[in-house]
Write a protein that binds this DNA or RNA. Sequence first.
DNA 1: GCCTTTATAGTCATGGTGACTATTAAAAAG
DNA 2: CTTTTTAATAGTCACCATGACTATAAAGGC
Lengths: 248, 248
Amino acid sequence: MSAAGPARVPEGYDPHAFEPFAVTVDLAVCTVRDGALHILLIRRGEEPYKGEWALPGGFVLPRESAGQAARRELAEETGLPDEVVAGLHLEQLRTYSDPDRDPRMRVVSVAYTALVPDLPEPHGGGDAAHAQWVPFGAYAGLAFDHERIVADARDRIGAKFEYTCLATAFCPPEFTLGELQQVYETVWGTALDRPNFRRKVLATPGFVEQVAGAARLTGGRGKPAALYRAGAATALHPPLLRPEGRPS
Amino acid sequence: MSAAGPARVPEGYDPHAFEPFAVTVDLAVCTVRDGALHILLIRRGEEPYKGEWALPGGFVLPRESAGQAARRELAEETGLPDEVVAGLHLEQLRTYSDPDRDPRMRVVSVAYTALVPDLPEPHGGGDAAHAQWVPFGAYAGLAFDHERIVADARDRIGAKFEYTCLATAFCPPEFTLGELQQVYETVWGTALDRPNFRRKVLATPGFVEQVAGAARLTGGRGKPAALYRAGAATALHPPLLRPEGRPS
DNA sequence: GCCTTTATAGTCATGGTGACTATTAAAAAG
DNA sequence: CTTTTTAATAGTCACCATGACTATAAAGGC
């Protein structure tokens, strides 16, 4: 009810009468690197879960929204300049609110998914100099319910690839269709037919637009590939369905 | 970070040191009634927004998750027996956390979408005897940011209809294909070709299963229609795309 | 030169879909 | 009791997107 609804709460409501909730954001920052989906993790320096992997994140400050907090934390963790962070794809994933998800107190966390291109430096801005890219699955148990969050993020990304142009968020500003295909293949874990993939992408207006006259060698050998930029389109109609329609 | 992350928060963290956040749930309870999508609204009995329409909802209690709170509130608002409420489709929509969304204090609200069949009685359980079905759009401004939540709920429902079997959640336990089609047409606001709709639904394994030997007259006239039940399938592959691929 | 590698062009059959028409089964109108 | 109306159901046909291919072009390595 946003403190609305029936008269369960008196008008002179005292915020401190309730056990306070802390509200945090958790960030599932993902990238494609060396043909594998990676996620940004930090090592916890304190109890609980000291020394274990966890998602970056932090408290929502009194005067900011969860989305603002997420972008602020993203800037701190990645150490990227503000104008770059402003362009990154950041999307609310879902909210995790199990009463026992943090042993210290009641913490409700709004999780966000960020899709970033493969960044040159591992990063290490601000507080989290120990942040690190870790391949999906290459961790043995994360702190809190972060494993669940990571799994949800992966599911969401895979699903969104089917009907959005989101895949370009994993690519640098200019990319080849082969690179874009590799992003799809990495996220879905399936091989795609190259000519068919080309045909589909190019047939979707606004998915990608060719960079005039530019070409780049991929892997040093073979015919140079044309370069493309992300187009203005955001949705994919009709969708690009992954083979065998597996929901996960 | 779910109170994790860098060492911004000392170990002996005092929950009361921060300005407390209240956490609530807002419910977008939707149904299809008389060929129009309706939403369950209540009249606010107190300031702020006294006398205006608002979504039902309430505070998340100290020992329950947001999902549990949503189902509890749903039971209270609809006044339905627990076993019925347990079967209703309830899904987290997203979280709204603008610092100024509630003028009284900092309230973060987790919104849920519920899809219910057209209930016999308007309802009126518990606290909210003044709850009422209102057609989408037939309200002049809702309290707080609830108009935004309602719009998001509608978008989400429309989108999910394309690739899930969710439409049956709007139908009674047994329904005709014509009724199912009306649900689609109502939610999407478009007319669908009947034979093609039949073909698609019946070609999707597990979407619906026929009730043996049962038939019902629709509207008093015409050939009686066969009755169907919701099947076990939850996803729709390939999807049932709405005409013209309009995102909203 | 020839081989390998990668990008790009094109073919062909199939399946799902949009746009139809036809038939059946009921009630209401005459 | 026949005709009309209404709605469900069956079936047709063309088209387009797709999956599975084959073929060509352009680069480097040998």
